[in-house]
Amino acid sequence: MADDDWWLLLGFVGQAVFMGRFVIQWLASERHRRSVIPVSFWYLSILGALVLLVYAVHRRDPVFVAGQGLGVAIYLRNLQLVRRARGADGLRAE
């Protein structure tokens, strides 16, 4: 497999992981009969965005790099907010 083929495969894998987060969110929402964003959505968002960011850097695409870089920061912040809320809920329960 040529070097360019590996990069193309990496780009498709990143995109598949990134798209998978929507399937997870949809299934969780259907199960709860309301819109739900499970924590796994944010982990898949981060993983997919990081893989796509590596691919975008390789392609030297500044628009793609900026979009994925900002996305990673937002997804990390959302995980921080989820953890903080879970910590606050744990303190209230005691």
Results as ranks from 00 to 15, higher is better:
Met1Cys: 07
Ala2Asn: 12
Ala2Lys: 12
Asp4Arg: 09
Asp4Asn: 09
Asp4Thr: 05
Trp6Glu: 01
Leu8Ala: 06
Leu8Val: 03
Leu9Ala: 13
Leu9Thr: 12
Gly11Thr: 04
Val13Ile: 15
Gln15Leu: 10
Ala16Pro: 05
Ala16Val: 09
Ala16Ile: 11
Phe18Asp: 06
Phe18Gln: 07
Met19Pro: 03
Val23Lys: 13
Trp26Val: 05
Trp26Glu: 06
Trp26Pro: 05
Leu27Pro: 02
Leu27Glu: 07
Ala28Phe: 09
Ala28Gly: 07
Ser29Tyr: 03
Ser29Trp: 02
Ser29Ala: 02
Glu30Pro: 01
His32Trp: 09
Arg33Val: 00
Ser35Met: 10
Val36Met: 06
Ile37Asp: 04
Pro38Val: 00
Val39Trp: 15
Phe41Asp: 03
Trp42Pro: 00
Trp42Cys: 04
Tyr43Phe: 10
Tyr43Val: 00
Tyr43Pro: 00
Leu44Arg: 06
Ile46Phe: 09
Ile46His: 07
Ile46Leu: 05
Gly48Glu: 11
Gly48His: 10
Gly48Thr: 08
Ala49Cys: 12
Ala49Asp: 11
Ala49Leu: 11
Leu50Thr: 03
Val51Phe: 12
Leu52Phe: 14
Leu53Met: 08
Val54Phe: 07
Tyr55Arg: 02
Tyr55Ser: 01
Tyr55Ala: 04
Tyr55Asn: 03
Ala56Pro: 05
Val57Ile: 05
Val57Asn: 03
His58Ile: 00
His58Ala: 03
Arg59Tyr: 09
Arg59Trp: 08
Arg59Val: 00
Arg60Val: 02
Phe64Lys: 13
Phe64Leu: 14
Phe64Asn: 14
Val65Ser: 02
Gly67Trp: 15
Gln68Pro: 03
Gly69Pro: 04
Leu70Gly: 13
Gly71Asp: 14
Val72Tyr: 14
Val72Met: 11
Val72Pro: 06
Ile74Leu: 14
Ile74Cys: 11
Tyr75Phe: 13
Arg77Asp: 04
Arg77Thr: 05
Asn78Gln: 15
Asn78Trp: 14
Asn78Phe: 14
Leu79Ala: 08
Leu79Lys: 08
Leu81Thr: 05
Leu81Gly: 06
Leu81Asp: 04
Arg83Cys: 07
Arg84Cys: 01
Arg86Ile: 08
Ala88Pro: 01
Asp89Ile: 01
Asp89Leu: 07
Asp89Asn: 07
Gly90Ser: 07
Arg92Ala: 06
Glu94Gly: 06
Glu94Lys: 12
Glu94Tyr: 11
